[in-house]
Design a protein around this nucleic acid. Structure first.
Lengths: 214, 214
DNA sequence: CGAAGACTTGATTCTAGTCAACTCCCGTGG
DNA sequence: CCACGGGAGTTGACTAGAATCAAGTCTTCG
C-alpha cells in the first residue's frame, strides 16, 4: 500500500523561511561541529541553508542513535520541548539560519507562522514514525535499501551523494558499520545500485530497490 | 543522564479537553474494534476517556508495528497529516470523545487552543523519539524492562495492569512474543518484578529495573 | 610518499527468531 | 460446580541473522 508521504519535501514553508530571513542570523559550522547539545536549553531554531546536519542521542554506555538527517530547507530544533532531547552536529561544513525562539514568539499573533510551525512539527513527527517502522520491523538489508531509496528520492540526480559516513548510517539504522558495509556490497552484487567511491552511488534498478526496501 | 521527560503526563491539556467536551461526541468501542484505519482520511480527533487504544501499522507481508499506546487523557489522531499513517484500535472496551477537525478549526482564532494542539503534537513527537531510541539501540531485555518501567510510572499503584497482550507488546518493541515472554520470565527470576497472572505485575526492585532499562 | 582514518571482508559468536510442544487461564455449558 | 475447550502464554531445541573481533584494503591528505 502506498502512503502520501514525500520524504523529500523540505520542512520549512515560505512563511517560516521569510521570518527567519528577517530575524535570523547566518552561521557557519565546520564538519562535526556541535550545533546544539542534548539536555541543553532549546532557545534557538535553525534552517539548513547549505550542507547537512544530523541529530544524535547517546545512551550512558556510549551506544548512539542518530535521530534524523537534515538537508537544505529543513527546520532543525523543533524536535523538542524546553530541553533538546537530541544533539545536533554538522555532517559537513554547512551554513544555517539561526533565530531565537523568543523572537519568533513575538510574531505569535501571526497565524500563518504559527500554523506553519505546527505543520512543520507534524511533518517531523511523520518522518520519525517512518523511521520507527524501519527500526522496529525491517531486516538489515531492507533498512539499508530504504535508506538509499530515501536519499535517491530526495536528490533525483543520476549520481546521489552520501553526505554521511558508514557509522552515521549504522547509528541511524540501528546496525553496525560492518553490517551496513556488507549490505551495500550485497546490493551492489545484485546490481541494484552502483557505487563510485564510497560516498557516491547510482540506482541501477529502481524496481528492485523498491521491492527490497519493502 | 536524566531528561526532563514525563511519559505519564496526558497529552490533552485542559484547553483541549474543554473544547472537545463542548463539540465532541462520546463513543464506545469494543475490544479490538477499529477506531480509524491506515490510509483513511484523517477527519476526526479523539480523546481517550476510559480504556486504552493502540495505533498500528502493517507492512505488506503482515509484519506489524505498534506505534503507541494511549490512555485516559491522551489525544489520539494527531499523528497525521491528511491521511492516517497508522490504524487505531481499542485495546479493550473503551470510551472516546470524538470531534471533527473542521469543528476545531472554527476555533482557529482561539490562540490557546492552537497552542495546546501544537504542544500536544510536540509531546507526541517526544514520545515517538523515546520509542525510536528503544527500537534502535536497546537489547530485548532492556526493551522489555523500559516498557514495564513506563507502565509502572504511569500507574503508580502497587499493582500495575498490563492492558495489552504479549503480541501487542512484541509488536511495540520490535520483538517476538516468545522473546517478550522469556524476558518477562527472566525479570521475574531476577526478582525485579513479580507477576500475578499474566496481565498484572508489581515492581519489586525499582533500582534494578531502572538499571536494566538503561 | 607515508600515515591515519574509513571502509571492506572473513571467521566466529551470540542474540533473538523460528518451530513445536506444553501449560495455564478463563469462559462456557452440561 | 466441575469438565471441557480454546486461546494466550511459556518453555525448549534448534536456526538464522546480525554483532563482534581481527585482518586486510582503499582513500585522502599532509
Amino acid at each position: 500500500m502506498t502512503l502520501a508521504y514525500a520524504p523529500d519535501a523540505p520542512l520549512a514553508t515560505p512563511a517560516i523561511a521569510q521570518v527567519m530571513e528577517r530575524l535570523g542570523l547566518r552561521m557557519n559550522f565546520a564538519k562535526d561541529e556541535e550545533i546544539f547539545c542534548q539536555d541543553e536549553e532549546a532557545d534557538l531554531l535553525y534552517i539548513v541553508v547549505t550542507g547537512a546536519v544530523r541529530t544524535t542521542r547517546l545512551l550512558s554506555d556510549g551506544r548512539r542513535q542518530v535521530g534524523s538527517f537534515y538537508y537544505p530547507g529543513d527546520l532543525v530544533g523543533l524536535e523538542t520541548g524546553d530541553l533538546h532531547r537530541f544533539s545536533a552536529e554538522a555532517l559537513c561544513d554547512c551554513t544555517l539560519l539561526v533565530v531565537k525562539r523568543s523572537a519568533v514568539k513575538t510574531f505569535a499573533g501571526d497565524e500563518d507562522l504559527d500554523r506553519a510551525l505546527w505543520q512543520a512539527t507534524r511533518r517531523e513527527l511523520e518522518r520519525t514514525q517512518e523511521h520507527l517502522l524501519v527500526l522496529g520491523r525491517k531486516t538489515a538489508c531492507e533498512k539499508v535499501a530504504s535508506f538509499l531509496m530515501d536519499l535517491a528520492q530526495r536528490d533525483r540526480s543520476e549520481q546521489v551523494a552520501l553526505p554521511m559516513g558508514r557509522q552515521d548510517m549504522a547509528d541511524y539504522l540501528g546496525l553496525t558499520i560492518e553490517t551496513v558495509s556488507r549490505m551495500l556490497t550485497q546490493l551492489q552484487g545484485a546490481s541494484v545500485v552502483e557505487f563510485d567511491g564510497c560516498r557516491r552511488f547510482r540506482v541501477t534498478r529502481w524496481d528492485a530497490l523498491e521491492r527490497l526496501a519493502e
